[in-house]
Computed example of a mutant assay.
Amino acid sequence: MVLPIVAYGDPVLRKETEAITKDFPKLDELIENMFETMYAARGIGLAAPQIGMAVRLFIVDATIFEDDEDLTEEEQKFASTFKKVFINPEIIEESGDEWAFNEGCLSIPDVREDVFRQPEITIVYEDENFKKHKETLSGIVARIVQHEYDHIEGVLFTDKLSPLKKRLIKSKLTNISKGKIDVDYRMRFPNAKKKR
């Protein structure tokens, strides 16, 4: 089932998220719905807060980058099979010189800005079967994971912009929160005027 994506300005995007336990109700169905929702919006990652749930869960599918000519052959190959569920993740290390990449977000449609992040991370997490993993990721895949991880920490990519950039997009963000934007996927706007 395709769920509405929560827009910028909704308090759930800033909430502290809670860990997920093995007895979490209908977790398989939730994960399936999240993938369906992400694909319907043509996204490459989706975190639980973006569908209104303050839990430590996000999904990533980087396979869209398998033919990206801006990436190395090795990065393309790795991205081509990178489709994962991250439960209760924790980034334990970030390293390397920060690099800029133009990021966007399903909760902040039509806003894209260069964001600086470190190129390599080590993350521990559980998969959908609660099997523990520890992985070191780099390049575009690390960036996608960092972006989604920020969501479960209550951080948005716009928080990482310079004060000037933030001022320049302020009215755009206000309009997004009010639903004054055209999107071709289901969204829930926190400050939209109710129709009578």
Score class of each variant (00 low, 15 high):
Y8C: 01
K194M: 12
S95W: 05
L13P: 02
I91N: 06
S171R: 14
A40N: 06
V60G: 01
G52T: 05
R186N: 11
L168S: 11
K77F: 08
Y8T: 00
L3F: 00
E148A: 07
T21A: 11
L13I: 06
E135Q: 13
G9H: 02
D127H: 06
A54T: 09
R42Q: 15
P89Q: 01
G179V: 10
N175H: 06
A7S: 11
S138Y: 11
V85C: 02
V115H: 00
G45V: 12
M34N: 02
Q146W: 02
M187V: 09
F35G: 06
K83C: 14
V55I: 15
K172E: 11
I87W: 00
L27G: 04
E98W: 04
E18A: 13
P119V: 08
M53A: 08
Q118H: 06
A19K: 14
K22V: 15
P49W: 04
K160H: 13
T136S: 09
E126M: 10
L164M: 14
Q76H: 07
G154M: 07
K83S: 12
L57G: 01
D23S: 14
H151V: 13
D114W: 07
R188T: 10
P25A: 03
F130R: 07
A7G: 04
P49F: 08
Y125Q: 05
S80H: 04
A19C: 11
E90C: 07
N129S: 10
D97I: 13
P190V: 09
A41F: 05
E69A: 10
D127T: 09
E153F: 03
Y8W: 09
G154Y: 03
K166I: 15
K26D: 15
G43P: 00
